[in-house]
């Protein structure tokens, strides 16, 4: 098991990828830990505006991340 991270919009360019797997779940056991981890992996992410969805549900405060979860980093939407 691992945590799957998805990047969308301009975050793909900031990170150079559209997805990644984090095998060591302890590194990212909650949303704040995940951000910290990603900021150290991808310094260009820091300061970018994005929302987080865990298993396709938006979160607006610190949330636990479980092994096997799918976490999406989503900049402001621009559909239509």
């Amino acid at each position: 098991m691992s945590v799957r991270i998805l990047f969308f919009g301009y975050l793909v360019e900031k990170t150079g990828r559209s997805s990644m797997h984090i095998n060591n779940h302890n590194l990212v056991s909650d949303s704040e830990g995940l951000k910290k981890f990603l900021y150290s992996e991808f310094p260009h992410l820091e300061g970018q505006i994005f929302k987080i969805a865990i298993n396709r549900e938006l979160i607006n405060k610190k949330r636990e991340i479980n092994d096997g979860d799918e976490v999406a980093l989503m900049p402001p939407y621009a559909g239509g």
């Binding site: 969308f8 301009y10 969805a53 402001p76 621009a78 559909g79």
Partner: peptide, 19 residues
Amino acid sequence: VPIWKKEVYDDGSEVWIKH
């Protein structure tokens, strides 16, 4: 709805649209 768009210009350059 989680949709994003990138504009592609006539000179080949591209920009993600931020609303």
